[in-house]
Amino acid sequence: MGAGHAHALYVHEHSPIHAASPEAKVAAVLLFVLSVAITPPLQAWAFGVYAVLLASALVVGRIPLRFFLLRLVGILPFILLALMVPFVGSGERIDLGWVSVSREGLWAAWGIIAKATLGAGAAIVLVATTEVPAVLAGLRTLKVPSVLVAIAGFMIRYLELIADEMGRMRQAMTARGHDPRWLWQARPIASASGALFVRAYERGERVHSAMMARGYTGEMPVLEERETPVASWLAVLAGPMVAAVVAVIAVVGS
């Protein structure tokens, strides 16, 4: 249940990136990812620039390489998928002696892998240098609908609790010798997830009561009214703006 542990996302460090305002960081990541996504794979030099930018963020943000690579595991299925593309792709073939691959497919595979890595990498840098509450506050400042941010906040808050409940249920089943190997033996697991839904829903009702007891009126109170100075916006966005310029050159020049 590793993914359920939100604290494994953050690197406790002091760096200029850690200190920067969360809304600027969220905006910076979006701009960077957008630039990466629109760049044609054939413009390999542009991806070199992006990689340098991302690597500098890792260094400045003091994010250990090992931590970063472990977090990248999420994109592995798509990397495997991309590796198949040259073999099944159509278009001009390149003969490698023992097997022939599609030239266009090779470029496509490179594009998928490069973009997936850079995109996921940027998101990893964001949450490694920004604690979850700050990211949520940043999203609110960037005018993401407050209901969605509030729902996301509750989700992250209760994720570990629910994952733990699920883990305990599974443990209890294993302890009584339940080791399902076929789908038709899955009834206990599925019933457990039904029970878990009921628990989650009822907890939602209790949390709602607890909120009402403290004067909740249907709108989450907005506590912080921070202003990020223009200069720090610019400082945070400098790297992604380079990426955006590179992307425009790459798209126009292709």
């Binding site: 249940m1 076929w182 939602g204």
Partner: peptide, 26 residues
């Protein structure tokens, strides 16, 4: 207004359910 906490916690349930493996075959 009950919808916000209930939605958030059932979202956590869906997330957890997506991580919970069930047997398929062999």
């Amino acid at each position: 207004e009950k919808v916000v906490p209930v939605a958030g916690i059932t979202a956590a349930f869906i997330f957890a359910a997506q991580m919970f493996n069930f047997p398929v075959a062999a």
